[in-house]
Design a protein around this nucleic acid. Structure first.
Lengths: 239, 239
DNA sequence: AAAATAATTGTGATTATTACACTTATTTTC
DNA sequence: GAAAATAAGTGTAATAATCACAATTATTTT
């Protein structure tokens, strides 16, 4: 994977090293049975073989960074049209042991119902980890993960991106559980309902939950059009 | 400024081009007489000579990205200990006409009272521009600037970073004018006072404004300790 | 001393938040 | 098939925050 370069002007060899190499690493969040999870992959080569890390790869000469991130995500998960945002660049000179490699961190939010690892995976092994069970990761991937988690927590208070983690149709209680899990707080059912419904971001469907052993809850969908209207005049999502 | 490389493995020449070259570009915000301003520099070399752009430069092999940004900022303004944060990386393949160069955007908030352009400037010319008067900039610098402005607007609603733009001691009215200018809204003096004082982030001093031709306002300072306490348990800065 | 200017304080109507308790619908158990 | 269990969904009253003004106070200039 590493390339070797010679500086044509100075003539110096830059051995076993890539000058200013750039990679992408992606934190993929999912939500399953009340738990926030992250998709990790097992490294297939090198000294760190068998250790877990964030999925990532190299940026091609002719593609934008965003496109590279989307491509990598598609190769791994078989999904396109995923919610994906750049976090920031991580560039400690020591972060990668074999040379100077700057990585650009992304985070993605996927609906677990859509996700199917077999679809396009090139990774030896990929697995969802609950946030509390994240192992030691290669390089600075724990730092990137923690940063993205902090970012998700502040973003979700200001923007309704949480919907990207839920199925198309969801109950108010599921939505509340998502907020509780990500923010690490307990909320009041009644007050949550009032607040979220008051925002008018949700559309009630004529459908109900199936296969639950108690009174079935009404299903809702997220109204994109109203969201965009609200975004323009600014709104607040604090709970 | 551009380097030329040969890929040692493939033997291919990569002429007039830097593979994966990385720069830093910095949006430096200041606040002067009620206006939000940005520090731009005039290019001293190349075809774009004379055109304005964001101050920036190359990242050295052995320094972290954050250190590079601080170093560049110090070289230009003579200041260290500036509020500086990474925005994100910009990497459209076409953004730089002579080759693939990815740039990492930063934004800084400086107190104009501290700033002295003569201190360490290497730029041919540097000048503060009001937001409304920003000219056409080189490469994708207008895009970077717009992005940082949007970022500042959302950040300032959630975090009291605005203080970095004001002198050490300021009046409540000055603070309000800062928020009005950045967010582009009008606020009610009375309600603003109540809200900001209620947060307990400000310490009233036994000092007053000098040299004003009317009743002098009390001066306040920002209380860092209380800010950190509040940050831990989370707080909201909406106005 | 009066006028001008802006700081500072006050007020009441409206809306949002919070902590609960209560009612309703559905499924499972006996 | 009635009772128990479970969670959905509604209601309420106290408290706090927001908003749109009006009134008062302290200084400086005329």
């Amino acid at each position: 994977m590493l390339k070797k370069f010679i500086d044509k002007e100075s003539g110096k060899k830059v051995e076993s090293t890539v000058m200013n190499a750039i990679t992408i690493d992606c934190v993929i969040f999912g939500f399953d049975q009340g738990s926030l999870e992250v998709l990790l992959v097992q490294h297939g080569e090198g000294i760190r073989k068998g250790e877990w890390g964030l999925p990532g790869g190299w940026i091609k000469e002719t593609e934008s960074i965003d496109n590279a991130a989307h491509r990598l995500l598609g190769e791994l998960t078989g999904l396109d049209d995923i919610y994906l945002e750049q976090l920031k660049a991580f560039g400690d000179p020591e972060r990668f042991p074999l040379g100077r490699v700057i990585t650009i961190g992304y985070y993605a939010l996927v609906k677990r119902e859509d996700y199917n690892i077999k679809a396009g995976s090139t990774a030896a092994d990929a697995k969802w980890y609950k946030i509390a069970d994240i192992p030691n990761l290669i390089y600075d991937h724990n730092e990137i993960l923690q940063y993205s988690l902090a970012n998700l927590r502040t973003r979700i208070k200001v923007t309704p991106i949480g919907f990207n983690l839920l199925p198309e149709k969801f109950t108010l209680f599921e939505l509340m559980k998502l907020y509780e899990e990500i923010l690490g707080v307990e909320m009041d059912k009644s007050n949550f309902r009032r607040k979220i419904l008051h925002m008018k971001l949700l559309q009630q469907l004529d459908e109900k939950q199936k296969d639950v052993s108690h009174r079935a809850a009404k299903l809702y969908i997220f109204d994109q059009a109203i969201y965009e209207k609200l975004t323009k005049k600014g709104f607040n999502f604090e709970f």
